[in-house]
Amino acid sequence: MDIALAKKRIEGFQDTPGALLPMLHALQEEFGYVDEAAVPLLAEALNLSRAEVHGVISFYHDFRHHAPGRHVLKICRAEACQSMGCNRLIEHVEKKLSVKMGETTADGNFTLEPVYCLGNCALSPALLLDGQPYGKVTAGVADALIENAQRQSGRQA
């Protein structure tokens, strides 16, 4: 983590009331996760103890402790998606990527995360790939999305 850059992002919210969540989102947006090294910076900026900052980071599911893969795939596993077979879809994707929910592939290409409802419950099952929503996702659609993303990162590399 670039400490100077982290400090700059934190300073941007110095005058915001209740600033810790906006600061954490800014750090995660910048670095993809919230580095342990950011804890003392946040504590100092907000006059909190490091324990308090740690407590907040660990409370929320969103904040990652490690850098994610190049692509983040969030699959909904709430009830509406369950009624349309999301558990089978998740099994299929886990097998295809050889990871379990919450893990990153060995090549660093994908992080697979569960999400509880994307508000796309009339077009279940639903997922979010790098922030882009997809609905009525079949195993075939998921395969195509994954392969397309793999090709993209192949080109970048």
């Binding site: 209740g18 969540l21 907040v56 409370f59 929320y60 969103d62 509880y116």
Partner: peptide
């Protein structure tokens, strides 16, 4: 922006979260 905690839909939890806790 919330941060992926369902409980923050409960009003007092939401207020805590808005306060940065």
């Amino acid at each position: 922006l919330g941060a992926g905690a369902y409980i923050c839909g409960e009003e007092t939890s939401l207020l805590e979260s808005l306060e940065g806790k």
